[in-house]
Amino acid sequence: MKSITRQKPLEEIEQQLEGLERAYIIGCGTCTTMTKTGGREEVLDMKERLQGLGKMVTGWTVIPIACDEMTEASLKENDGAIRSADCLLVMSCALGVQKAGSYSGKPVIPALDTLFIGVEDKPGYFHEVCDQCGHCVLGYTAGICPITACHKGLLNGPCGGTNNGKCEIDKEKDCAWTLIYQRLKAQDRLDLMRKYQPPKNSQVIPRPRLARIL
């Protein structure tokens, strides 16, 4: 499971960099390396693209895991190049962007959009697996998540928009409830689908979400 990201269009990155001429680029050795959106190769490519826009790149690094405490040490090692930059252009998921922002005090610019928490099906293809909704229903749905796999997040069965096992928003996408139905049927557990599911609690932990786990 990893944070799935996509690079922002260069125009949007350029807009964010308005008035910021010197950038230090940070990549991540974990999720964005695996998704090829913020690993070493992409960081070097971004360096060239920024230079093409007339920006000065004061340095770059790929932090092994941009979302953990090592980020602080890693940024300290590169203190000189960072200090001479106007901003940090971060090619990690939003977690790394926030870490870099809190450790350096420099303006942080995300070069990527964080799309979802997902898994890779085959090289370059990812799907969302968990919305982190706070109240797991997989026990009733044969291990297929209706929150992320159903466009409408329905809990009591399919909508009328499904056709031949596909979703109304895209004929390429599977209907989650057809998959759930098929698997429950194979397990002889369709009684679970017949059971009424009440509305989900949208405030399991009200935002900002904090948890103390003993």
Binding site: H151, G157, C159, I169
Partner: peptide, 24 residues
């Protein structure tokens, strides 16, 4: 009714609520 999905309509970037479903 549950309601049609947002992307098939004319406000393609709107947020779909679907907090309840038709049964609920």
């Amino acid at each position: 009714l549950t309601g049609d999905s947002i992307p098939i309509g004319d406000h393609k970037e709107a947020k779909g609520v679907f907090e309840l479903d038709s049964v609920q």
